[in-house]
Write a protein that binds this DNA or RNA. Structure first.
Length: 439
RNA sequence: CGGGGCGUAGCGCAGCCUGGUAGCGCAUCUGCUUUGGGAGCAGAGGGUCGCAGGUUCAAAUCCUGCCGCCCCGACCA
């Protein structure tokens, strides 16, 4: 993409409304624009990142055996009356009437819809297990939206729903999601810690929140150091095999967010040198809730014994739009955003320091063609602007590689290659620089 | 939802107390000079001062109501 034709409105100053660094940077880098409290338009750069995160989530869900569907944003109130949640949900639910005075709502989540879909097709234990997920916009009319897309009213969420014949099978479904989540966060360049979450009235140990580490995070996490170092299981595990040992490895060690933290237990379960306290952001939540919806909504399946039983369900959420902000919180510096390669809006930036100079123009065109052909998706800054402005804007938007082409370097037969994450620069011939980028 | 604050040019702000020609910086446009970390000079354009009433000869400024947005708290992907 040539920057002269692109739409990337960067700002030198952050709008006063933005409080946290990710919100400020998202506005300054031209990723989003606020349309109303907690409601944002996604500008080209922000949309690219959002789509990349979405794709990582999708690939890992598919790998773990989940099947993608797309459910509507508008849902019938009647379904929610069946589950009993229509009256319970309160003011956070945006309620709408259509022209026939029929009660609708903008979905804050989709348990009811997915249960309705499930029950109308699946009747036998032989068709289980199933895991259906969708990546869709949700709306929760928060009393107080804040922190940009971190806590917006409208947000993009991946929500998966598992269906099993019994609790033992549901646990296997849960384990798959548990490990798939760790792989998602690892691919996004994040350190994620699974912490036990409150299961409420359902009880049990099948509920975890995933907290990614970021110095500016809003909540506090307490964890055994080994858990943080352990990392993700990787994509090559046997998804149909016994995942319990892998999950236990990662749930045995102490980990808690501030609301579940028990300092005495922490000290008992982890030696002083192993205790880590950090700040983090919640970016995922998985839990098993059994028959909570299947029973009132009569999602029944026939078991091997010929008896109908409510299907056992679990749900698994990832805040996709929130992750855009979370990644920035975890990865930025004074100059701007530092995107991990996996979600960067462009693979490399080409900076033409002297547009109109025949040598610079030719070298940039060559680089642009080569990187495009190699699938790097370069952003070519071909604007007639000063070098300083180009450096600042490129740092701000966080593109991983910067290929700097100027008359001084070209006179010596070199260009400059800068790695955004480390700030490391090297002068080298154009061909060598292109090779370094395409790896 | 309780408490607080703010709405003046695309962005950041001053002016309001004490009513009288709407201003500054950045951004934008033109010209010249510049060109390796958000340039300099000269000039230009852009605002029904959130909306609606009221007071007054006169309202960005004072009064009333409404709307929007932000912050702190309680609640959440």
């Amino acid at each position: 993409m040539r920057l002269s034709r692109y739409f990337m409105p960067t700002l030198r100053e952050a709008p006063a409304d933005a409080q946290i660094v990710s919100h400020q940077l998202m506005l300054r880098a031209g990723l989003i624009r606020q349309e109303a409290a907690g409601i944002y338009a996604w500008l080209p750069l922000g949309l690219k990142v959002l789509k990349k995160i979405e794709q990582v989530v999708r690939e890992e869900m598919n790998r773990a055996g989940a099947v993608e569907i797309l459910m509507p944003t508008l849902q019938l109130a009647d379904l929610w009356r069946e589950s009993g949640r229509y009256d319970d949900y309160g003011e956070e639910m945006l309620r709408i009437k259509d022209r026939h005075e029929r009660d609708l709502l903008y979905g804050p989540t989709a348990e009811e819809v997915v249960t309705d879909i499930f029950r109308s097709y699946i009747k036998s234990y032989k068709d289980l297990p199933k895991n259906l997920y969708n990546i869709q916009w949700k709306f929760r009319d928060e009393r107080r939206p804040r922190f940009g897309v971190m806590r917006g009213r409208e947000f993009l969420m991946k929500d998966a729903y598992s269906f099993d014949i019994d609790e033992a099978s549901a646990r296997r479904s849960y384990n798959r999601m548990f490990l798939a989540y760790l792989n998602v966060y690892a691919r996004l360049g994040l350190k994620a810690i699974p912490v036990r979450a409150d299961t409420g009235p359902i009880g049990g140990d099948l509920s975890h929140e995933f907290i990614i580490l970021a110095e500016t995070g809003e909540s506090e996490v307490f964890a055994h150091r080994d858990l943080v170092e352990m990392g993700a299981p990787g994509p090559d595990i046997d998804w149909d095999g016994d995942l319990q040992p892998l999950v236990e490895q990662r749930t045995r060690l102490y980990a808690a967010s501030d609301e579940m933290h028990d300092q005495a237990r922490f000290e008992a379960e982890a030696a002083e040198g192993d205790r880590m306290t950090a700040r983090g952001i919640e970016v995922g939540h998985i839990f098993y809730f059994g028959e909570k919806y299947s029973k009132p909504m009569k999602a029944l399946v026939t078991g091997p014994d010929g008896k109908d039983v409510p299907v056992q369900m679990g749900s698994y959420g990832v805040g996709v739009s929130r992750l855009v902000a979370a990644i920035i919180e975890a990865s930025h510096d004074d100059a701007g955003i530092v995107w991990p390669d996996s979600v960067a809006p462009f693979g490399a930036a080409i900076l033409n320091l002297r547009v109109g100079d025949a040598g610079c123009d030719a070298a940039c065109e060559q680089a642009y063609k080569a990187l495009t052909a190699a699938g790097v998706d370069p952003l070519y800054d071909d604007r007639d602007d000063r070098p300083g402005a180009k450096f600042a804007a490129t740092d701000l938007v966080g593109i991983p590689w910067q290929l700097v082409v100027g008359p001084k370097g070209l006179a010596d037969g070199v260009v400059e290659l800068k790695r955004r994450a480390t700030g490391e620069r090297q002068s080298l011939p154009l061909d060598a620089a292109l090779k370094a980028i395409t790896g």
